[in-house]
Design a protein around this nucleic acid. Structure first.
Length: 323
DNA sequence: TCTGGGGTCCTAGGACCC
DNA sequence: TCTGGGGTCCTAGGACCC
């Protein structure tokens, strides 16, 4: 762990970014390989070991993104990810409204707690609507208010999250910049434009979602052991049901069948549905050695591969399962 | 915000094993 | 036979993030 990394958050807006995201990220990688992309238009850079003044580095990067890609960006610099991210938000907000952001906001090491103190509590990572409502009930409104509370009390009230909050409120954050992260789950879900109670169309949707999940697994060369069904009723209550398979799968039919079983466990026929989703987790490499006594499995896999290829070439509609 | 989609992490209880 | 502790796996739900 670096003692005092200096980090940049680069951030634009979805409106401007999107397809050019990749080009931006390439510019970041030109600066340092220590890039952690956290969304389409945001990344952390660890520039601890770069020579030169941080403001100048930030300005140079911003200029390059503007000149070469014609994009606005804003940058926060601090000794850790939490403070850099918040610094960037603060800097962006301070700009003239209606103008694209070109802010560069630097929080010098040692000034973190003071910088955060007057900001609203919900600007902290991990403080969302629920937690900030509970905090308000305790008379806690700013990050400084959190910092003044005894850590033990916060832990008692909020569990591990309370410990994090106490640390973060003091401007402390030890999370390193992570350049590559393992993917943990793949899912697809859809909200119906109108609540649906038609059994056949719900099952059809489920098959489609399962197939999409399966395809994404295969594209990433992954297979998963747990299949999860997510379903939301018209009153917005949402529930999940999951099952662990005897072996990892990336096969559309296996995923579909597991999902259908789960569906029948929680839903009675004609019951109205708002949302339905399928996910696969506990991911790992697909096991696909050809075992003689598992002829069926290997056959299914090869059929699937051929279908993927044809779909890739000729589009979604080209293949239907025969009956 | 009468509420989209795809993720991550945490908690908690039960089953099971040693 | 009974009690207890600890670890692991599994399931379900919830908060939060972009």
């Amino acid at each position: 762990l670096k003692l005092c990394p200096e980090l940049i958050v680069v951030s634009g807006s979805h409106h401007h970014y999107g397809r050019v995201s990749k080009q931006v990220m390439e510019r970041l990688h030109d600066l340092t390989p220590l890039v952690e992309q956290i969304s389409i238009d945001e990344a952390f850079l660890d520039i601890t070991d770069l020579p030169g003044d941080v403001t100048r580095i930030a300005r140079g990067l911003q200029t390059r993104i503007r000149d070469e890609l014609d994009l606005p960006s804003s940058i926060g610099v601090a000794s850790n990810k939490l403070v850099a991210k918040i610094a960037n938000e603060v800097g962006k907000k301070g700009g003239r409204s209606g103008q694209p952001p070109f802010a560069i906001t630097v929080v010098p090491a040692g000034d973190e707690a003071e910088f955060l103190a007057s900001l609203p509590a919900e600007m902290l990572w991990g403080v969302g609507p629920k937690t900030s409502a509970r905090l308000a009930g305790l008379g806690i409104h700013t990050i400084g208010d959190i910092a003044r509370w005894p850590e033990g009390e916060l832990v008692r009230l909020f569990g591990e999250n309370g410990r994090e909050m106490a640390m973060h409120a003091r401007g402390q954050d030890r999370r390193p910049v992570v350049t590559e992260r393992e993917i943990k789950s793949i899912s697809q879900e859809i909200t119906y434009a109108r609540d649906t109670r038609d059994d056949a169309s719900i099952e059809k949707t489920l098959r489609k979602l399962s197939a999409q999940v399966g395809r994404r697994l295969r594209n990433k060369d992954l297979a998963g052991t747990t299949v999860k069904l997510k379903i939301r009723w018209p009153d917005f209550t949402t529930l999940t049901r999951q099952v662990t398979l005897p072996h990892p799968t990336d096969n559309d039919l296996e995923i579909t069948e597991a999902a259908l079983k789960l569906l029948h466990k929680v839903r009675v026929p004609k019951q109205a549905v708002r949302l339905i989703g399928v996910g696969v987790s506990r991911l790992g490499p697909p096991v696909r050695q050809l075992e003689l006594w598992e002829h069926g499995t290997e056959k299914a896999r090869r059929l699937q591969a051929v279908m993927d290829e044809l779909r890739e070439k000729y589009g979604e509609a080209v293949i239907r399962k025969g009956k």
